[in-house]
């Protein structure tokens, strides 16, 4: 097996009851690579991400993260792998009962032994990177959907993950903020060598951040390539994502 692989998914199948979502998923993500997943709503893009962090278990197949097969790990081993992964939930998933500051401090206080000053600095930096330092003492219920997503992103990035899984990072944001988030994703890749899978419908974000794009349809990846390659594709389904764009 190649040892510069961050994630390696082999023959993963997953169905819920009679609803077959993933038929045969094979995917490799190399270290430092930024991969974008396209696909219609409801095709299982989020399910793949959840399988990678062990929130869902595939019916069959293997998912290697840094060589460890996620479905076979014990709870403790899984926790160790999860410390290297950051997961941005589609909904943001902020802890409702805590302020923004507490949300961001929560993983730091529990998983690291940084002192208060260091934690404060990190929280400040993370919030500034998503442009929301002014929201530090707010409760999640006081924030808009887009703000929640950006705080969610800040909370994920604060633990310096090696692998980032973004579930629709820019959905519901205005174009300017979307661009800032895309640039933040790019910065994570360039500066911190983060490997990532980015599920998005935002082609501008895809163009900016993707080293490689895969397209999911009917439970399998039907094609892969760089943004430019896919743009030239003849497949009408793939074409449909690029329609109306003029880059």
């Amino acid at each position: 097996m190649e040892n510069n692989l961050a994630i390696n998914i082999e023959h993963v199948k997953k169905s819920f009851g009679g609803n077959v979502v993933l038929r045969d998923i094979n995917l490799k993500v190399y270290e430092g690579e930024s991969l974008v997943t396209l696909g219609k709503s409801g095709t299982g893009k989020s399910v793949i991400l959840q399988c990678i962090v062990g929130l869902l278990y595939p019916d069959s197949g293997s998912i290697y993260v840094y060589g460890k097969n996620i479905p076979k790990l014990s709870e403790d081993e899984l926790q160790e792998v999860r410390k290297k992964i950051g997961f941005l939930f589609q909904s943001g998933a902020l802890y409702d009962s805590m302020t923004v500051r507490q949300n961001l401090e929560f993983p730091l206080r529990r998983l690291t032994d940084l002192n208060d000053a260091e934690i404060n600095n990190k929280v400040k930096d993370a919030l500034e990177s998503v442009g929301l330092y002014r929201a530090i003492d707010k409760m999640p219920s006081e924030l808009s959907g887009g703000m929640r997503k950006r705080i969610g992103l800040a909370r994920t990035l604060i633990t310096d993950p090696k692998i980032m899984l973004y579930d629709e990072p820019t959905t519901g944001l205005d174009p300017a903020t979307s661009r800032e988030i895309s640039e933040l994703i790019l910065k994570m890749k360039d500066k911190h060598k983060v490997s990532s899978i980015n599920v998005t419908h935002d082609m501008e974000c895809a163009k900016l951040t993707a080293d490689r794009i895969v397209v999911l349809k009917d439970g399998v990846y039907i094609c892969e390539g760089t943004f430019e390659e896919l743009q030239k594709s003849d497949d009408p389904f793939v074409k449909s994502f690029f329609e109306g764009l003029n880059f």
């Binding site: 959840q50 962090v53 929130l55 926790q79 160790e80 999860r82 410390k83 992964i85 997961f87 939930f89 589609q90 909904s91 998933a93 902020l94 802890y95 409702d96 929560f106 993983p107 529990r110 998983l111 994920t156 633990t159």
Partner: peptide
């Protein structure tokens, strides 16, 4: 229940907190 539905429990789990 609402923490479960809004994925807050999942978020805790993936950030390696039990």
């Amino acid at each position: 229940g609402s923490m479960k539905v809004t994925e807050q429990i999942a978020a805790m789990e993936v950030s390696a907190i039990n």
